[in-house]
Computed example of a mutant assay.
Amino acid sequence: MESWHRNRLSAGQAEFVETRLPGVRFLNDLSWNLVDTAVLEVAHGQGRYVIKAAGPSNRHIRRELDAHEAWTEAWARQERAPILVHANPSLNLLITEYLEGYLVEGSAAEYESGTYLQAGQLLREFQAQTVRTDSRYEAAATEKAMAWLETPHRIEESVAGKVRGVLAAYRPEPVPVVPTHGDWQPRNWLMNGAELRVIDFGRFEFRPAISDFCRLAVQQWRTRPELEAAFFEGYGSDPRGSRLWNITLLREAVTTAAWAFQVGDREFEKQGHRMLADALANYRTGSSPMLPAQPGNFG
């Protein structure tokens, strides 16, 4: 039993896979190895599949299942996202069909405008499936950022103090929330020919639509405004508003810096500290340079 999954799955998880995919064969370990999520490419018969599994305290598999069960069908029908074939929530495990394509991150496609045009179109389609008002989201997100500051991190105390001051002064209001991917960036995109595809829904959640712009805004868009322009051409509008956008970027920066330190991702931690500096600079100047003159609303 151990030969095909290389001890990445529990005995119960491996047994479940073998009952659903008899004679399963290991092909590749695709895990990031930052958290306890195992991602294994396997073969069964003439097909290829991806197994995702984690320990009982890991919440990402449950989030991914929520996304597949209700929200990814439109993409999956177009072969733009994986199709869920088996799942066992009690074992924290799911199996999807393998999606062909190469990872956009690190490829030429990462800095091609056409990639971001498609990314905007796909995200708009995903988020537009439904919208609801959440009276607690902003308060909970702010409390969570505050809580991250009480966990181990390498944020300078002077910086942490400024962040606490901004978060404490913020007055949350009800906001519209939509289905969000949660980690919308090139490391979760595949390119198959000229077609963009989407993977990894482990951070799926209902959030404000702008939350899916954060990764891109502080990475690829930072030095390549033409990619940002292509994205919003595909998305159809730019729904960022200064108050919500700035606080979203600040909370994201805190989470990034603290989480990356705790899992030992030095490059991502460095990005988190840069995000903190930029977000606080926006508060000092009262500006948000990435905003349009007349931001639209999600609808």
Results as ranks from 00 to 15, higher is better:
Ala81Ser: 14
Val177Ser: 10
Asp212Gly: 01
Met290Ala: 12
Thr256Asp: 11
His5Ser: 06
Met290Gln: 09
Glu105Ser: 13
Ala38Tyr: 07
Leu276Asn: 12
Val254Phe: 13
Ala230Thr: 04
Thr37Gly: 11
Ala229Met: 01
Ile83Val: 13
Tyr102Asp: 14
Asn7Thr: 12
Gly202Ala: 04
Arg164Trp: 05
Met275Lys: 07
Phe16Thr: 07
Leu27Val: 14
Ala38Leu: 10
Glu269Leu: 01
Leu34Lys: 11
Leu244Thr: 02
Ser107Val: 05
Pro89Asp: 08
Phe16Ala: 08
Ala109Tyr: 09
Gly55Gln: 00
Val42Trp: 06
Gln220Asn: 13
Thr96Val: 12
Trp32Cys: 05
Val85Met: 00
Ser57Thr: 12
Asp265Gln: 06
Met275Ile: 01
Trp259Thr: 10
Gly12Trp: 00
Ala230Asn: 07
Gly234Ala: 12
Gly202Thr: 04
Ala257Tyr: 11
Ala277Thr: 14
Leu91Glu: 14
Gln271Tyr: 03
Thr130His: 05
Arg80Ala: 13
Ile155Cys: 10
Val198Asp: 12
Thr285Phe: 08
Glu205Trp: 10
Ala277Val: 09
Arg25Tyr: 03
Ile51Cys: 08
Ile247Ser: 02
Ala253Arg: 05
Phe231Glu: 09
Gly47Thr: 00
Ser158Arg: 13
Pro176Asp: 13
Leu40Gln: 03
Thr248Glu: 15
Glu156Trp: 04
Trp189Gln: 03
Ala230Lys: 01
Arg274Cys: 04
Leu27Trp: 01
Asn28Trp: 02
Pro186Glu: 04
Gly120His: 06
Gly272Asp: 07
Glu18Asn: 15
Asn33Thr: 08
Leu276Lys: 10
Leu9Val: 04
His60Tyr: 08
Asn92Tyr: 05
Asp200Val: 04
Trp221His: 04
Ser288Leu: 01
Gly182Val: 01
Gly264Lys: 03
Arg25Gln: 13
Glu157Asn: 06
Tyr111Met: 00
Arg154Ile: 01
Leu196Arg: 02
Lys270Ala: 15
Gln219Arg: 14
Ala279Asp: 10
Pro56Asn: 02
Tyr98Ser: 14
Ala145Asn: 01
Lys270Trp: 06
Ala217Asp: 05
Val50Ala: 00
Thr256Asn: 01
Gln127Ile: 04
Arg266Asn: 01
Ser57Ile: 02
Ala74Trp: 06
Val218His: 02
Arg203Thr: 12
Ala14Gln: 12
Val50Trp: 09
Arg222Thr: 03
Pro172Val: 08
Ser107Ala: 15
Thr285Leu: 14
Pro295Tyr: 08
Trp259Gln: 11
Phe213Pro: 08
Glu173Tyr: 00
Asn246Ser: 15
Ala253His: 05
Gln185Thr: 09
Gln271Lys: 09
Ala67Tyr: 08
Glu18Cys: 12
Tyr137Cys: 13
Gln271Leu: 15
Leu99Asp: 12
Thr133Gln: 14
Pro176Met: 10
Met191Trp: 07
Ile155His: 03
Gly241Ala: 13
Leu99Asn: 12
Gly286Gln: 00
Tyr116Thr: 07
Pro89Gln: 08
Ser287Pro: 00
